[in-house]
Every structure is written in structure tokens, then in C-alpha cells.
Design a protein around this nucleic acid. Structure first.
Lengths: 330, 330
DNA sequence: AAATGATATGTAATCGATTACAAATCTTGT
DNA sequence: ACAAGATTTGTAATCGATTACATATCATTT
């Protein structure tokens, strides 16, 4: 219709600068007239690219990830790429993840928000051919072979402890996240550092085991209640557990921060609007997503055979709100 | 390697039943040996299917949608399909992007969670060729040309009013969602029905305008505060606004439910753990996602040329918790 | 005006599977 | 033992773009 060859049409559409202005306009005009759309399957087949990145999320139901996803999406959309979201929890088996997403030429790269992938899957991420860049975001692996972006979890936790000690607390408890989770470990280490710096020892009875869920926070509330000797403050490895804790305590007449100070971690949207507003460590979630996406796109563009590893650690910030106060006199 | 033709290999892999058992085993064996993986781009190109469904979400950052997504994903993964998530918020400025998803042979079908798509996009959904099935979930269009799954929003709202009236309230306020939003309209109508049934008229000063966000709930709290004549109960068109409202009131010494009863809508995870636990209308979010996915898969399989429209309205449930009580004597 | 290089376009191979159709083989009934 | 039908396999066309390479056109320099 434009009176040119298919090759010229292809170039006019995907590499406009290689075609004379006049011809280009003819082609674009004809394309608009006919409502032509490229067939992506054909393009992908021939060009060995997919225009898609895969994001592996441990649990889509958790609002914590939604902001990160939206950060990723905001960057990726600008580049004309699209995002395939996989909830690793639903992948029938881990094998499913491997074959379906990693090997099946589905993605130009991966962003992984799940630091607990089985070794088998991790190996496949590295072995897939052709190798696709992988960025771990938020959670990460101890493995040195991956790029990552995360916040300074240790520092966040020690900031929290500093804050509590600054208020006069010396009897401080801690709610852990799920065992084996890398965030759990880093935050606990940070808390320990904080304790050490202030010459505080933490009573084993004051280390509670949670799993990042609201419910587990509520369970800890009951455990705290049952203690004879209670800490005057508790640092929670994430905000949701703090909510569960505070809410359950409240049901039983225990007031935060009068009777117990509570610090969280993450600063999710609701934290500022909880009752009381939650003192917490702010993790810039949107930026985590944005950075991860930018790193990935850079890696995809460079496509150096080996590929340089990138890493980025974003700062955390202590948000002092209403859930912490000086300890009551005893 | 298996000593058969490519056609047989293809059949052994994608339609195993059409191949003799022995041959099939030979092929599978060889495939396993060589680590063969189908190239999806090639398959899609030839078979005119993509194995992908696109979900259009108004705002990925909103935790309300995460459960729905996870419901969708759980179904879709079982069918060996994958989910492409598009945040329409980012694409809206560039509607062509959204149209790209629609036309670019990217998906076998669509689930749309956004009832406020511009007409242009809606037309594209219908006109795309080949036509792909579309299911609206949660939000919907007044347009009769689409399948949908949603809850009984009207009934939910009137249940909420019934509950408040049952407690003895007759001075009831209402916080609307964003104007033009279909949920806003349906819930408001339901509330009006409730009012009518109990011969209550709602004061215009008690109709507040929100936008489903925490912040807008907080704004309403200040407006409520400024009123001379205040309602004794407020029904919020969603839970987040209720949180914002209660939290801001609390900062100013107003207690819920003693000074004001509050009912929300949605029953998101946090509602049961808020302070006080929020009385709300439960919307089965995971099921909404599951139903939407099932309806879509059915439509994709049938692929009747016209395609019968499907619709489903799920029930809501009143969850009575701590944010409502009988009005204080005045 | 011819030579050189830069720019623009066309021809045809190619990506890797699926599938219509034909051909070969096997079953079954008579 | 043979025809008819069912089952299995193979041949080769095909999906719709991209791109290596060849060729044509144009601008610039000497």
C-alpha cells in the first residue's frame, strides 16, 4: 500500500531513523490506515527478544509487594516493555517455575523478590541459555553471583534499638520474621548490634518467633501477656506483626505506648494511620522497585556476555510516631 | 535423536495422545536428554495462541487488588497459563500502550479490574481481531456487552445501614468513594435503599466525599469535627477510608465506637486487626479472582464466535466487630 | 566527470514450532 | 486373505516478522 518492500516497512516501524523521512511517512500513514499491528510472536521469534520481564513474587497477597511492583511497572512501561508477574507460591512445583518461566524464552530478564527460592531454581536462573540478567530486589541470596538492590536492614534494626534506648528502654523484646528468611537474619543482626552498643543483653524469653503475618503478631501478644517479667518495648521485624501485636494487646486492655512501646519495620501505607501511628523503619518500596527495574534494563541493554554484577543499598529512615514512649516507671 | 520426524516430536510434546506410546517415550526421553524446551514465540506464532492472560489493574499499589490477583493466579497457573499484569494507572496517560496490550496478540483473554477505562479502550476490547474474551471483575461497566463477576454491592451497603439502625442509630453519615466510580454509585444506592427502608433521610452535610484512600478518610475526620450537628455513625464506602477516619479522630480524642460508630466495606486483611476491629462488609476477594479466571478460561476454551456473556454476583457478608455500638445518649 | 562513500531500499533466508494433507501401518470383520 | 477403517507417522507449507547481504541512489570530493 505504501509501495515499498516488507523490509522497508519493518524498518520504518522498528528503526525509523534508518529510513528516509518521506518513505517513513508513507509507511506510517499506510499502517494507520489499515490499523496494522506488529505480531509480537513473530517479532520475538525472529529477534530473540520478548519485550517482557518476569517478576517473581513470594506472595502477591501481601500488600508489601504491591508498591514495589508498581515501582517496577512504572519504569518498565516507559521502556515499552511489559511485566509478567509470577507468584512463586502458586507455581505448582518449583519445577514449574523453572521450565515455564526461566527456560521458555519468556523473558528478557528477571526480578526476583523471593530470597527463598530452592537451589535448583537458582541454578537454573544462572544456567539458562541464553543467560538472562537477574536482579534480586528487597530480599537477596547470600550467593555472590547475583545483582541485587535492597535497603540497609541491619542499620534499620539498629536505628530502632537506638531509638528505644534513647527513650530510656533497657528491657527490649524482639519479634523475628520467618526463620531462614534473609531479612529476618539481617534485621536480627542489626538489632543485636544495637543491643551490644548499649551494653544490653537480650533475654531469650523476649525473643519471639513470628512469620511476618498479622496473626503471628497477635500470637506474640498472648505470649507477652503470659510472661512474668515483661519487656517494656518490642521491636518487630515488620509492620504487620506490630499491628497484630498492638491490636491483640489492645483487646486485652494493654495500651501502646503507655504500657509497651512498639517499633515496626517497613513503613507500609497503613503505619502512619494506625492507632497509635506506628514508629517504624521506613523502607522506600517504590524506589526499590524502580531501582530494580532500572538495573535490569541496564543489564539487558548491555548484555555483556559475562555481565557485570550491580548492587545497590538504599538508606532506611527512622519514622518516629506514636507507638513509642519512655517506659513507665516501675 | 529419537529417529522420528519433527512433526512427531511436536505431537509427542503437545498432544501426547495422538502418538503411539512407544514413540512418545522415545521422544520424551530424547527431549529430557538434550534438555529441549519449546520456543514459545514460535509456538505462539504458528498456533495463534499465547498462553497468557492480561489483567488490567487500576492501581497495583493498592493492597485491595493483591488478593484478587492471587486468586486469578492460582487458577491460571493450574491451566499452565501465565498472567501479565498491567497497571492502567501508568498506561492511562498513554492509552496507546493499553491498546498495545489489546491488539498485539499478547493475550488469549483479559480480566479487567478497572471500571473506569476510557471509551476508546473499551471499544478496542470489543473490536480487537481476533476478538478475545474479556471479563470485568469487581468493578464493571454499565455497558451490557461484557461478562462480569462482582459482589452484591447494593446489598452490602444496605446491610451496613440495617446494622447501624439496628443498634439504634438514626443520624448516619456516609463517605463516598471517587465520583464516577461504579462501586461508589452502587454502594451509595444501596445505602439510600437502607435509609429509605428505615424512613431515615440523610442530611446533605453528612455526605462526605472521599476517594478510597486513607488520607481522604482523615480529611473527613476533620470535616466531621467541624460540624455542629454530627452524625452518630458513618458508613464508609471502603475500609481504608474507615481506617483514615478512625485514626484521625483518635488523634483528636474522639473514640470509636463510643463517640462514633464506623462501618467499612471490603474486609481487607487488616480490618480484623484494626483498633477497634472494624465492622465491615466482607467482599470475598480471592473468590472474585478465582471466578474471574474460571469464567475467562471457560470463554477462551469455548471460543464461540459471538461468545455467550457470563455473569456472576457473589454474596457479601456483614462482619460485626468492634467499631460499631449503640449511640451514646445525647 | 569520475571516484568514493554514505544512505536508502529490496531480495530472500530465517527464527522454531504447528498442522493440513498424504502415506504408511495396523485392526478388524467377513 | 482382503477390504475398509482406524491409527500412526512423515512431508512440507506456514505463521509474520527481522535482517544479512546485495543493489540502487544520492551527495561529496578531487
Amino acid at each position: 500500500m505504501a509501495g515499498v518492500s516488507t523490509a522497508t516497512v519493518s524498518r520504518a516501524l522498528s528503526k525509523p531513523e534508518t529510513v528516509a523521512k518521506e518513505t517513513r511517512e508513507l509507511v506510517l500513514e499506510a499502517a494507520a490506515q489499515t490499523g496494522y499491528r506488529v505480531n509480537l510472536a513473530a517479532r520475538n521469534l525472529r529477534s530473540h527478544r520478548t519485550g517482557t520481564i518476569v517478576v517473581m513474587v513470594p506472595n502477591l497477597g501481601n500488600p508489601f509487594f504491591s508498591r514495589i511492583l508498581s515501582g517496577i511497572e512504572s519504569v518498565v512501561v516507559d521502556r515499552g516493555l511489559s511485566v509478567l508477574v509470577v507468584d512463586t507460591q502458586f507455581a505448582k512445583s518449583k519445577m514449574d517455575l523453572v521450565s515455564n518461566y526461566i527456560h521458555h524464552s519468556r523473558a528478557d530478564g528477571f526480578i526476583v523478590l523471593d530470597g527463598s527460592l530452592p537451589d535448583e531454581v537458582v541454578e537454573n536462573l544462572l544456567d539458562s541459555s541464553p543467560q538472562r540478567p537477574v536482579i534480586f530486589a528487597c530480599e537477596w541470596l547470600e550467593d555472590e553471583r547475583f545483582s541485587f538492590v535492597r535497603v540497609n536492614n541491619r542499620r534499620g534494626a539498629s536505628l530502632a534499638i537506638d531509638h528505644l534506648v534513647g527513650l530510656g528502654h533497657s528491657r527490649i523484646g524482639y519479634i523475628n520474621g520467618p526463620v531462614e528468611n534473609i531479612l529476618t537474619k539481617a534485621r536480627f543482626e542489626g538489632a543485636l548490634t544495637g543491643f551490644n552498643e548499649h551494653d544490653i543483653t537480650i533475654d531469650a524469653a523476649w525473643q519471639f518467633q513470628g512469620d511476618f503475618s498479622l496473626e503471628s503478631g497477635a500470637v506474640v501478644a498472648r505470649q507477652w501477656f503470659a510472661l512474668e517479667d515483661r519487656p517494656s518495648a518490642i521491636f518487630c521485624a515488620n509492620d504487620e506483626m506490630a499491628f497484630g501485636l498492638i491490636s491483640e494487646l489492645n483487646q486485652n486492655g494493654v495500651k501502646v505506648p503507655e504500657d509497651l512501646s512498639v517499633v515496626g519495620f517497613d513503613d507500609i501505607d497503613l503505619s502512619a494511620h494506625f492507632i497509635p501511628p506506628l514508629t517504624t523503619i521506613r523502607q522506600p518500596r517504590t524506589e526499590l522497585g524502580v531501582s530494580a527495574a532500572e538495573m535490569l534494563i541496564k543489564a539487558v541493554d548491555d548484555r555483556a556476555p559475562g555481565g557485570e554484577l550491580q548492587s545497590k543499598v538504599l538508606p532506611v529512615e527512622l519514622m518516629v510516631r506514636g507507638s513509642t514512649a519512655a517506659p513507665a516507671d516501675r
